[in-house]
Amino acid sequence: MRARASFGIIAGLTLAAWAVGGASIAESARAIPVPAPKIDAARPAALQTAVLAGGCFWGMEAVFEHLKGVKSVTSGYAGGDQGSANYDAVSTERTRHAEAVRIVFDPRQISYGTLLRVYFGVAHDPTQLNRQGPDTGPSYRSAIFPIGAEQERVARAYLAQLAAAKVYPRPIVTRIERGPFFPAEAYHQNFARRNPQHGYIRTWDEPKMAALKAAFPALWQDGWSG
């Protein structure tokens, strides 16, 4: 079910009534104290790009847009072909795309490994298979799309580090994938920024932003990037 399309049905429910995988919204949005990566990417002067998938791109975009050093975040689709990279097609769950965000960042201010730390600690739940919160289907999967061998090396090392640390009560299901990124439709871009009172944003994404500010105060910026 595309919960965003039918949000009016559920908007009146309390947080406690919305149980997903045994956890309420408030619990699932709580930051997980993940360790800093032991292996990180180089930090050149040039801007770098990362592509991450972790459920609805509205919330992913909102989280990463509040990080110092992030220059822009674009919502889109990764893992499928260009012809079906549109919301109607992806919603059929037959296109192989994942809802994802493309993050342009300054590695002198924030490293790729730090982006992954926020991704695993705040932005989504990496133990949910083909879903996030109320949204179900493979387009909501947890996946990293490394750009280059170095990002893949860092991502694989961090996945192994987190698994060894056993910081989650369930196994991590995040996949390392390859595939191009295609920007989503204009109405999806900067959605949380433009629609702060939207029911989905207030219920599912505001708690993530609050968790980010509490868990990573040195990374938080009050304004939006881009």
Rank of each mutant, 00 (worst) to 15 (best):
A31E: 03
G199C: 08
E27W: 00
I39N: 02
K38P: 00
D125V: 00
Q221F: 00
A143V: 08
V167G: 15
N86K: 05
A218P: 05
G199P: 07
A160E: 15
I176M: 05
A123E: 02
V122N: 08
K213C: 03
D81T: 11
N86I: 06
K38V: 06
G199I: 09
Y200T: 07
P183H: 12
R178W: 10
F216H: 04
P33R: 00
L47E: 09
Q109I: 09
Q132Y: 03
G113Y: 06
T92Q: 11
A11I: 14
A165P: 07
G54S: 02
T203V: 13
W204N: 13
I201G: 07
I176T: 08
Y187F: 15
V104L: 13
R156C: 13
R194I: 11
K213M: 04
W224K: 04
P217G: 02
R194N: 15
N195L: 03
E150M: 09
T203P: 05
R156W: 12
W220L: 01
H198P: 05
G83D: 12
D135H: 06
A85F: 01
G55R: 00
S91R: 10
Y140K: 04
E185G: 09
A215F: 02
G199D: 10
P217S: 04
G80P: 10
V167K: 15
P169N: 12
A164H: 09
F64Y: 07
I144R: 10
S28I: 00
R175G: 14
V20R: 02
H66Q: 11
Y187C: 05
Y158H: 06
E152D: 13
W220A: 00
L115W: 06
K208Q: 09
V20K: 00
H66K: 15
A42V: 01
V101S: 12
L67E: 02
T174I: 04
H188G: 06
V118P: 05
Y119I: 06
T95K: 06
T127Y: 03
I32P: 02
A50L: 00
T136A: 07
P146R: 13
G55A: 00
D88I: 11
L47R: 08
T74E: 14
A215M: 06
Y158A: 05
G133I: 04
L162I: 08
Y140P: 04
